[in-house]
Computed example of a mutant assay.
Amino acid sequence: MSVPMTVQVVTPAGVVYDHHANFVLAKTTGGEIGILAHHIPLIAPLTIDEIKVRRIDSDTHVDWIAVNGGVLEVRNNFVTIVADSAERERDIDVSRAERAKRRAEREIEEAKATENVDQLRRAEVALHRAINRINVSKHL
C-alpha cells in the first residue's frame, strides 16, 4: 500500500475537505495533473473544474469537489487547494446551480445584444461555474 497524502481544500469560509488519499487529479491552467505520494513540490493555478480524490480506504472510494479556480500546492505528501469557493458533490444544491446556469445564459444573451464585453465575460464565468457544479453533483 502506498503512503497516503493529506488533501485539504480551503476557502475563505474554512476547510471544505480534509482526508487522506492515494491519488488526486486536478486541472491546472497548464492542463490536467495527477498527484501521487512523494510528488515533487509544486504550486499551480487551477481552472474552474472538478477535483478527483481517490481515498485510501478503497480504490473505488472517490470524492469529487467542484472548485472555482484557485491554487494547488503539493509539499511533503500534503496537497492543499486554496479556492474562492469549493463544494463537495454531496453538498451541491443542484436546483440552485440550475437557476444560476439559466441566469448566466440570460445574461450572456443580454450582454451580446448590448455588446457589453465586461458583462459577457462575467456571465461566461458564472455559466462555467454553474455547469461545473452541476457536473460534479452527477458523480453521486
Rank of each mutant, 00 (worst) to 15 (best):
M5Y: 10
M5K: 07
T6N: 14
V7Q: 05
V7D: 01
V9R: 01
T11G: 09
P12R: 13
V15R: 11
V16P: 00
V16R: 10
V16M: 02
Y17G: 06
H19M: 06
A21Q: 04
A21W: 04
N22G: 13
F23S: 05
F23R: 12
V24C: 02
V24I: 14
V24R: 02
L25G: 05
A26F: 06
T28F: 05
T29S: 07
G30Y: 03
G31W: 04
G31A: 12
E32V: 00
E32M: 06
I35G: 00
A37H: 15
A37K: 13
A37S: 15
A37V: 07
H38I: 04
I40P: 00
I40Q: 13
I40Y: 12
I40G: 01
I40D: 10
P45T: 09
P45F: 00
P45D: 10
P45E: 06
L46I: 09
L46D: 10
I48A: 04
D49H: 15
K52S: 06
V53N: 09
R54S: 07
I56R: 02
I56F: 09
I56H: 04
I56C: 06
I56Q: 08
D57M: 09
H61L: 06
D63N: 09
D63K: 02
D63W: 01
W64C: 06
V67L: 10
V67F: 01
N68G: 10
G69P: 02
G70P: 06
G70M: 12
L72P: 04
V74T: 08
R75H: 11
R75Q: 11
F78N: 07
V79H: 03
V79G: 00
V79R: 01
T80D: 04
T80H: 11
V82G: 03
A83V: 06
A83Y: 03
D84I: 03
D84G: 12
A86W: 02
E87T: 03
R88E: 11
R88K: 15
R90Q: 13
D91K: 04
D91V: 06
I92S: 02
I92R: 01
D93Y: 05
V94R: 15
S95R: 07
A97N: 10
R99G: 00
R99P: 00
R99W: 10
A100G: 07
R102K: 12
A104Q: 08
A104W: 11
R106L: 14
R106S: 10
I108Q: 12
I108G: 02
I108R: 08
E109V: 01
E110Y: 08
E110Q: 12
K112Q: 15
T114V: 14
E115F: 11
V117N: 03
V117D: 11
V117I: 13
R121H: 08
A123M: 06
E124I: 11
E124Q: 15
V125P: 00
V125Y: 11
A126R: 12
L127K: 14
L127E: 11
L127G: 03
L127R: 09
H128I: 04
R129L: 10
R129M: 12
A130S: 13
A130D: 04
N132Q: 02
N132K: 01
R133G: 02
N135H: 14
N135S: 14
N135A: 13
V136K: 07
V136C: 07
V136Y: 02
S137V: 05
S137C: 03
S137Q: 05
H139A: 12
L140M: 11
